[in-house]
Design a protein around this nucleic acid. Structure first.
Lengths: 231, 231
DNA sequence: CGAAACGCCTATTGGGTGATAGAAAAAATC
DNA sequence: GATTTTTTCTATCACCCAATAGGCGTTTCG
């Protein structure tokens, strides 16, 4: 039994992270119930029983994965919501921020989306609260946009929020499998869809969100690009 | 080994359907790997081993569930695509048609969405082809709309398709858990979002799809309704 | 009636699974 | 270099699960 640690708790971070990374990867690929602790161990090149030095149960491993997957989603969304700018710009920034982790943290996010429901009651509720708070931030942005006259008055804020989140989360599933769909383009298309929809505007041209360089990750050389889908 | 059946193959349908219904319900609730054949048997009030009179393996049960879940998705979408009317109306009809099964066939659809990836290679590929054909129908409608000048020229048809499908599929997950979200309202909001987006149009007012009474299920008394979300 | 097929049962098995106990190796600390 | 702490190992267990074998009552139908 490890004795009390120093005040700042400089506990071993490195290896424990690798363990959880492996769990996230394996759970994301085979599903929580479809993956065995043996699979996780194989992925790390170690023995199955050794895993239990890092977590007390398979469930707690999933819990840690889900906890890390929410990461700084909330903070980033809140920062965007608090910032200045129009509703359209904020929505665009949130979409970009929402999709950003798909590259580096894809396994974590997929675990969160698909496996979180297998968590025990307690932690499921805790995780659920975070998710609901995130949705509420997004919903507030939409409601503010309606109040400011920038978004349609007949829009249902709650359902619009769920639609937007659902659209983005769906992208987490097919991102990587879908050819000719770099992250920047997805963000661009989703933003255009959420703001302007598919239809040709009645007058004038559809306005793109004015300034969109929040994360600055995507290339975005040209304003937009046409692609000739499958070869 | 049962000998050749009569010409019309009047094989026992009723009970076999109940078995697959139960499998769909249990798989949808606990996940394919999280559900045991014992769970399915319990749900039916019969013994675990008796299930194997109806299917040769758990996997094949999942396969049957997924096969039935695609149901007449394709046909209905194709009929809408072939029909006359503007792109907006077709998209609205497809959204309604896509969401329709969530009430009666919810378990099947959720199984298809979440568990299909656990199918063996062969059947996964077959199911995947159906899904891809469905998406292609939707994509064709969008492409035709662009060609006709009804949808934005800078729209990426493939990504728009995935976005729309993803948005609708996400609704399958939270439908029923979400209060104040009857199917009719969801369809209305999603349609408005897909066609016009969230933003206030620059001139004129956002046009709703002209004639929208395909299934006639939803109330839709007033043209639109404002709701004071949570009580 | 009597044979065949149907629908479900009991009993069982072989293998995989999460988890524990305790020793041994490896690293850190003094 | 000895002691302590960290990390991984071997060995094992109790349990659950998918699937098989074969029997028994019931229905179908010539």
């Amino acid at each position: 039994m490890p004795p009390v640690r120093g005040p700042r708790a400089a506990r071993p971070r490195r290896r424990a992270d690798e363990i959880i990374d492996a769990a996230a990867a394996v759970f994301a690929e085979r599903g929580y119930h479809g993956a065995s602790t043996q699979d996780v161990a194989d992925h790390l090149g170690m023995r199955q029983a050794s895993l239990y030095y890092y977590f007390p149960s398979k469930e707690s491993a999933l819990e840690q994965v889900c906890l890390r997957s929410v990461g700084d989603f909330l903070e980033r969304a809140q920062a965007i919501a608090n910032g200045s700018g129009g509703s359209a710009d904020k929505l665009a920034a949130i979409i970009r921020s929402h999709l950003a982790p798909v590259e580096e943290r894809g396994a974590y996010v997929r675990c969160f989306l698909r496996e979180r429901r297998f968590l025990p009651r307690e932690s499921a509720r805790r995780i659920g609260r975070v998710a609901r708070r995130y949705e509420h931030i997004l919903q507030s942005v939409i409601e503010a946009g309606i109040a400011a006259g920038e978004l349609r008055r007949d829009l249902d804020p709650r359902l619009a929020t769920l639609a937007l989140v659902g659209m983005c989360n769906a992208a987490m599933e097919w991102y990587g499998r879908e050819p000719n769909a770099p992250l920047g383009l997805i963000v661009e298309v989703f933003t255009g869809l959420a703001i302007s929809g598919m239809a040709v505007p009645r007058h004038g041209r559809p306005r793109p969100p004015s300034g969109n360089r929040a994360t600055g990750s995507g290339g975005r050389a040209g304003s937009r690009q046409r692609r000739q889908s499958r070869g």
